[in-house]
Design a protein around this nucleic acid. Structure first.
Lengths: 203, 203
DNA sequence: CGCAGATGTTAACGACGGTTCACGGCGGGG
DNA sequence: CCCCGCCGTGAACCGTCGTTAACATCTGCG
């Protein structure tokens, strides 16, 4: 919520909130709708009112744009998740609820980022893809830690699968026609996620 | 399970199981790994041991390949779902379990198809995309019908959201490192999906 | 035997799109 | 005032890739 919350990245220009951020936002929207490979540089430019090549005043390449986008998402998730768990005290169920609330909020606020996050990862360079996966893995492990506490008899692998399944559930937000009020959707997703995460280990 | 189960489609050549199917299978795998736009015709050809242009002896275009792939998936899901519900009798909970078992089996057997199914829909032609969405919608409505019976007080919109969330949960299979035995994963996903689908309506 | 059709191959075409280049306006500090 | 870094433009370059064309090969059948 603080003004420093926005500049997650390794880029020192906190004093350029405007054009660069504008481009990233517009690109995220377009990438989510049609896939990064189907969106031209000209399209992104047009979405912010400039021509295609103008993009290169702000980003080294189209790939660099995507890379920064995905890295930011992964960093925000990891940081937010870690923070929420720490703030939730020692009760595993409270920690789980905090994680779920966080992920639900993020997914409802940024459906486009959710979509791009797991659709366009393969198009990244090997180095960038590796870094994004590293961050994702660490975020997953935060969940696995909490889930392991809740399911002491279950193996780590089962908890990891559970975590991915809950992600899939919550990250279904891009598929929802948002005709019902946000609060209702949030409540529904949170309830379903908690039920899924705490369901008994055997069918 | 029967031999007729494979030819879901409107194509009369049931007598050509080999090369054409081979290409579709290989393409699905490649598309899932790297996205259809990032996969060249030459790549698909190489995957089945021929050169790129040879593809055009079997498909009118690369887009037609993708279209047929997505249409088949949607048709299989709709047909299978409808059939399972009909076979499950009148009990809504039994119907739900049948649907979940079906979706879990499909998602575990065809993770690549699951990935392509919701990632490459935007790259289809408008006409094909429309048809695929129409089939998807009908499949969703099968679920919505069952869920509405289970949650009589909840609105249709809420049930639709619930359906999408369950899809997201079950369709997380592409993200699972399959280190644990398939039966365990299937049981886990089914249990989570049922818990999520039947969770109380309010948080 | 030799035509026909199905299946492949290599070479070439043509379009699309990311990137670069050369240039122009705009604003602030010496 | 004038110079310079920032930001933008239009034109051109060039690699990639879907697609087509022209030319073999093999099989089966009359």
């Amino acid at each position: 919520m603080t003004s420093t919350g926005t500049d997650t990245a390794l880029h020192a220009d906190a004093a350029r909130p405007s054009r660069r951020e504008q481009i990233l936002r517009a690109a995220a929207q377009l990438f989510a709708e049609r896939g990064s490979r189907s969106v031209g540089v000209d399209d992104v430019g047009a979405a912010v009112g400039v021509t295609g090549p103008a993009i290169y005043r702000h980003f080294a390449s189209k790939d660099a744009m995507l890379a920064e986008m995905l890295l930011r998402i992964s960093e925000r998730l990891l940081a937010g998740g870690t923070e929420r768990v720490a703030a939730a005290g020692a009760d595993p169920l409270a920690q789980l609820r905090a994680l779920i609330a966080f992920q639900v909020d993020f997914a409802l606020d940024n459906p486009a980022l959710i979509t791009v996050h797991d659709r366009d990862l393969p198009t990244l360079s090997d180095a960038d893809a590796h870094e994004v996966r590293r961050l994702q893995r660490r975020y997953v492990e935060v969940w696995v830690g909490v889930l392991t506490a809740l399911h002491p008899t279950a193996g780590v692998e089962a908890c990891r699968a559970r975590a991915h399944a809950v992600f899939g559930l919550v990250n279904s937000t891009p598929h929802l026609d948002s005709r019902l009020p946000r609060a209702r959707t949030a409540g529904l997703l949170a309830a379903m996620a908690e039920a899924a995460a705490t369901s008994s280990s055997q069918a």
